[in-house]
Design a binder for these strands. Sequence first.
DNA 1: GCAATTTATGAAACCGGTTACTGTTTACGA
DNA 2: TCGTAAACAGTAACCGGTTTCATAAATTGC
Lengths: 353, 353
Amino acid sequence: MKPVTVYDIAREANVSVATVSRVLNNTAPVKASTRERIMNLIQKHQFQPNALARSLIKKETGMIGIILPDITNPFFPEVLAGLEQEARSNGYTFFLCDTGSSNQDHNVQYQRESEYLNILMEKQVDGIIMIGGRIDLAKCSREMVKEVAEVNKRLPVVLINGNLPGAKFHRVIVDEISGAKRATEHLIGLGHKDIAFIGGYKQMSNTVQRLEGFCLAMEQAGMPVREDWIITGGFSVDAGKAFLNALLAMGGPRPTAIVCANDLSAIGAIKAAVKSGLRVPDDLSVIGFDDIPLAANVIPELTTMSLKCLELGRTAASILHLLISRGEDTNELTTLQPELVVRESTAPPRARG
Amino acid sequence: MKPVTVYDIAREANVSVATVSRVLNNTAPVKASTRERIMNLIQKHQFQPNALARSLIKKETGMIGIILPDITNPFFPEVLAGLEQEARSNGYTFFLCDTGSSNQDHNVQYQRESEYLNILMEKQVDGIIMIGGRIDLAKCSREMVKEVAEVNKRLPVVLINGNLPGAKFHRVIVDEISGAKRATEHLIGLGHKDIAFIGGYKQMSNTVQRLEGFCLAMEQAGMPVREDWIITGGFSVDAGKAFLNALLAMGGPRPTAIVCANDLSAIGAIKAAVKSGLRVPDDLSVIGFDDIPLAANVIPELTTMSLKCLELGRTAASILHLLISRGEDTNELTTLQPELVVRESTAPPRARG
DNA sequence: GCAATTTATGAAACCGGTTACTGTTTACGA
DNA sequence: TCGTAAACAGTAACCGGTTTCATAAATTGC
C-alpha cells in the first residue's frame, strides 16, 4: 500500500498541490468549502505529510542532536529530561547519540563523537548539544576543538559542562569550583580537619575544577592539603570503593571526612567504609557531587552538591532554541551554581579516641 | 556560506551528478582517475551528502524511533544502551521520545504517545520500538491497540515488555510471572513463611504478572496469601516507604520477608524498615525486581531479579533490524527469563522472640 | 460603475540527492 | 579484424513536499 501524498489529496479534491499545502500550513487564505473538502480527505486517508520532503526545501528539520558519553550514567538522563521538557514545547525532537564511553578508551570515544557529528550534520539537524565526554577533557587536542568549531560554523552547538579550550562556544556550565569549595566548607564548618578528596579523572576538567575548589576551601581555612589524600582515577562505585580502601590501607590517622568527585564514587566510598566497620557519618563523613536521583535513596542518604541537572538541560535547550530560531546572540557562557543538599552522610567528627 | 552539493562537486570535477553519486555509493564502476578527482573535491570541500534528499528517494532513513515513558527511570537507559549497541552496528540512529509520564496522568501520556507516533511516522523512521508506558497497561482501550496496529501496518513496530491485548505485535518480553515466582521461592527456600508483596500498579501488566508469580509460588508451597499484605500503588522509592510503613502500622505479627514489584520500591521499603529500627536482612528480607545499576550499590546490596535489560534492548534491536531489512518474519514473541541475583538484602528469618 | 485591492487558485521551479535508461568507449575472444 | 560484453559516463525523471509568480474572481472604495 503506497503512502498517500499531497498529489493524491489534490487529485481527489480537484485542486492543485499548492492548495493542499496551503491548508496544511495555513500559509495563505483558502476558500472555506475547499479547505473543508481537503481536510476531510486528509482525515479519510490518514494523510501525513512527509517530513523529509518538507525539511528538504524548508531547510529546517526540527531535530536536534544530543551527544553524550554514557546514557546509563544517571546524570545524563536527568539532563536529558530537562532538555526534553524545554525542547518539546518548541517542537523539537531528539537524536540520541550515546558514544558508549564507559568501557572504551578515549580514542574510541573520540572517533564515535566524530562519527556522530558527521551523521548529525548529514541528517540536517537544526542544532547540536554536547554533554560531557571529550568536551570535558581539560587537555583535548587541537584537532578536536577545530572539528567542533567547524561544525559550529554550520549550525548552532551548545556545550553542557563543556570546556573546549581556546575556542568560543556557547556553553552552559556548572560552577564546579565554587561548588566543590562549598562542599568542602560544609565539612570544615562541621569541624572536620582531616579531609580527603577522591574520585574523577585528572584529565577531565570537572575533576580538575572540583579539586581546585577543594584546595581553595582548605587553604582559606588555613588547613594543609595532603597530596596522598587526593586519589583520582575513576567515577564509578567500584572506583570509590578502591579509593577508600587505599586511604585506609595507608595506616596512620585516617581522614574523618571525604569530598568525592561524584555521587557514584561517594556511594562506593560509603560501601567500602561500612565494610571496614566504619560507620557513616559517625566515623566518617562523605559528601558527593551531582545529586543523582538515588543519592537521596541510599542508606545513609547522601549529602551532595546538586547540579540541578534539569535546569542545566532546560537552559541549554532554550539557548539552542534562541540560536536556531533567531540566530540571536545570547550570552556565550551561562553559569549555574550547584546547591548544597544536606542529608545524612555528613556530621561533626567524633572526638578521637 | 551555502552548503556544497553534488552539483557543485560535479561541476568542478567536470562530470555529471550521476557520477558523483556513483563514487559516493560505490554503486557502479567509475574510472580510477575520475574517482580520485571527485574524492579530492569531496575532501577539499568537506562535502557531506544531504541525508534528507537521499532518504527521500531511497525510502529509508536509517532512523528508528524509541518511545518510552520516563528516561530518568534507570531501567530505560539500560535498555537503551542495549538498543544502541546492537543498532549502531547496523547503522541506525535513534529518535528518543520520552513521554515524561512520571508526573503526568495517564491521559496526558496517551496523548503524548499518539503525538510521538505521528511525528515518528512523518519523519519516516524505518521502525519503532515502544517500551513500557501504555503498552504496559493490562487494560488498555481498544482505540490504542488499533492505533498502534495501524502504525504497524506501515512500518515495523517492536514492543518491549509490551502487552497490547487482542492484537499481534512483535514483542520481546520478560517472563515476569516465572521471575516473581522464583523470587518468592528464593524467600520460601530461606525458610520464610510470612511474606508480603508491595509495589507497582494494579492496572499495569507487569505488576499483575509479578503478583501472579508471587501467588503461584505461595500456593505451590502451601502457604496462604494474605490479601492485606499485598499493597500496590506506585513504583517509586517513596511509594515503597509508604507501603512498608503501612505494613508495620497494621499491628500483629509482621512479615519477615517482602517481595517488591521493583527495585525502587524495594529500596524505599528498606529505608523505611531501617528508620523503624528493623535490620535488613536480619529482621526483614527484601527482594527487588529489575536489577537497576544501583541495586548493587545500595546498603545493604539488594537481592533482586535481573531483567537483563541490555539483552532486552539488543534483542529488540536485532528483531527490528530483521523486520526492516528483510521484512522477514521472525518469532512474534521472544521471552527472556529474569535471573535471580542474590546479594545482601535476603537471609533466613530469625527465630521469633 | 469602474479602478484598485484582496482573495483564491494553479503552473512550475526548487530542495539535493538516486537511478533507470541510453549511448559511447574500451577490452577481449575467436 | 570484427563482434560482443563490460566499463564508463551523461540525461532526465523522480522522491514529496513548499513557494514564487501569474492569473482569475470577488470585494472594496469612491
